[in-house]
Design a protein around this nucleic acid. Structure first.
Length: 428
RNA sequence: GGGGGGUUUCCCGAGCGGUCAAAGGGGUCAGACUGUAAAUCUGAUGGCACUGCCUUCGCAGGUUCGAAUCCUGCACCCCCCA
């Protein structure tokens, strides 16, 4: 059994714990069972969830038993933690679909078949679903002093807002999560809960409840929020969150996100998100500093993470796409290869006939493909040297395109500027 | 209720009878440089059938050969006095 505490510590993954002094020894003593909860607020987890997920994974690798909890019940309520406004409730059907999707994603990170430390996947709806309201108030609610609840950051910060306020429903959230912890202790001997730093209040609520109901001392630990050097959140782009689901964030986009991580942030990311050990990370960063242009560290980060999240095929597709997006002329491809690589790129179908006779004006092609909002803009792009057909620059404003410009049987790859791509598919 | 100021192209903001598709800045787009970074530099930036034509300067009319610019009415905004 590896020293998980030491491991998490050097990786910078411990933000707060309920007992810094006792925890290392307690973990070293014997395999423990711990859990992390994920509420099904969307059909996919995103990079923000990745930190806790990786922690869970590391615990398992170190010989402990992880439980991934999907919040089928808590997701119905909505966690107020870290939120400035009341959540909208999700429909039951949406939740059910989200639970299934998220369970599938969790399976990639944990080993569910490795003997006593095999991971468990649980859904708190299974025990909360039939818990009667009166019973819950008597058995659980009775142990929550309102004054303590009101003092929690998640509640206090909301109530202090001028436009603030919070429904009774959200206020009750912490009771549910607290009870989860007790339930998992009862049924699986789970004694440690891990979560993001915004989960501290909910975690300690569970520890308090366990002390009152079972007279046991459970443990809690939170992970830091990984922020970028520029102060913004890691895992967000202007376009939104980076998701783990390939349908929401393609493997290529996912890979690119990590390739583009700033130099200042790449070390932290390697520690947080990869299994590389301290020596490997140090060596990689040294290498990177020697020749930053190579982006050695970012490449490694992107490779490791994309493989973990999207598998070998996903990684291969992302790398293939990367070569092409930043590579030379595209010709002699097959439709299916091209469409796979450019899966993220907007495409438009046009009748094959447009290529006949005098062909299709490049101006019109850029316009039809959506790379220019007007034909004037298309003309401008071309005359300024920003238009490319199959990655080959065309600067003749009057250029016309014929069948010889197809990159594959029916596809033409257009580009405006450095990286705005669009496909035109010529169909009968 | 009385007096004054304003409404300009994606945004801010100049223009106050022709040389105005309208200065300047921001943003955006392209190019160069570069590490698929940051910064910087250059160019472009109403539309189209693009050496020309059409549409824009709160809205509707009017004066004039000609209006974003002058006049009338309307709408909205701001300030001062009551």
């Amino acid at each position: 059994m590896r020293d998980i505490y030491q491991e998490l510590h050097w990786r910078g993954l411990i933000y707060q714990s309920t007992d810094d002094a006792a925890l290392p020894g307690w973990l070293a003593e014997k395999p423990r069972t711990l859990y992390v909860g994920f509420d099904p607020t969307a059909e996919s987890l995103h990079v923000g969830h990745l930190v806790a997920l990786m922690v869970l994974r590391r615990f398992q690798q170190a010989g402990h038993r992880p439980i991934a909890l999907v919040g089928g019940a808590t997701g119905m309520i909505g966690d107020p933690s870290g939120r400035s406004e009341e959540r909208n409730l999700l429909s039951v059907e949406t939740l059910r679909a989200n639970v299934v999707a998220i369970e599938g994603q969790l399976r990639r990170f944990l080993d569910f078949d490795c003997g006593p430390r095999s991971a468990l996947l649980v859904n708190n709806y299974d025990w909360m679903g039939q818990f009667g309201y009166l019973d819950f108030l008597r058995d659980v609610g009775k142990h929550f002093p309102i004054n303590v609840m009101l003092a929690k950051d998640s509640v206090k910060s909301r109530l202090e807002r001028p436009d603030g306020g919070m429904s009774y429903t959200e206020f009750s959230y912490m009771l549910l999560q607290a009870y989860d912890f007790v339930y998992l202790y009862d049924h699986y001997g789970c004694e440690l809960q891990v979560g993001g730093s915004d989960q501290w209040g909910n975690i300690t609520a569970g520890i308090d409840l366990a002390r009152r109901l079972r007279s046991v001392q459970l443990f809690g630990m939170t992970c830091p929020l990984l922020t970028k050097a520029d102060g913004t959140k890691m895992g967000k782009t202007e376009a939104g969150a980076i998701w783990l689901s390939p349908t929401r964030t393609s493997p290529y986009q996912f890979y690119q996100y990590w390739i583009n991580v700033a130099d200042e942030d790449v070390g932290g990311c390697l520690r947080f998100f990869t299994d590389l050990d301290a020596g490997q990370v140090t060596r990689l960063l040294d290498e990177h500093r020697a020749d930053p242009g190579q982006r050695i560290a970012q490449r490694r980060l992107a490779t490791e993470l994309t493989r973990l999240v999207h598998g070998d095929e996903g990684l291969a597709a992302a790398q293939r796409a990367t070569e092409i997006f930043f590579g030379a002329e595209i010709r002699h491809w097959r439709d299916d290869q091209l469409l796979a690589v450019f899966a993220d790129v907007p495409s438009r179908e046009l009748p094959r006939g447009r290529l006949d006779d005098s062909g299709l004006a490049l101006v019109d092609a850029l316009f039809e493909a959506g790379l220019a909002k007007t034909k004037s803009e298309a003309r401008r792009t071309i005359s300024q040297g920003g238009a490319y057909v199959n990655n080959r620059r065309v600067d003749d404003v009057d250029a016309r395109l014929g069948p010889e410009h197809l990159a594959s049987q029916s596809v033409m790859v257009l580009r405006a500027g450095k990286k705005r791509y669009a496909l035109l598919r010529f169909v009968p």
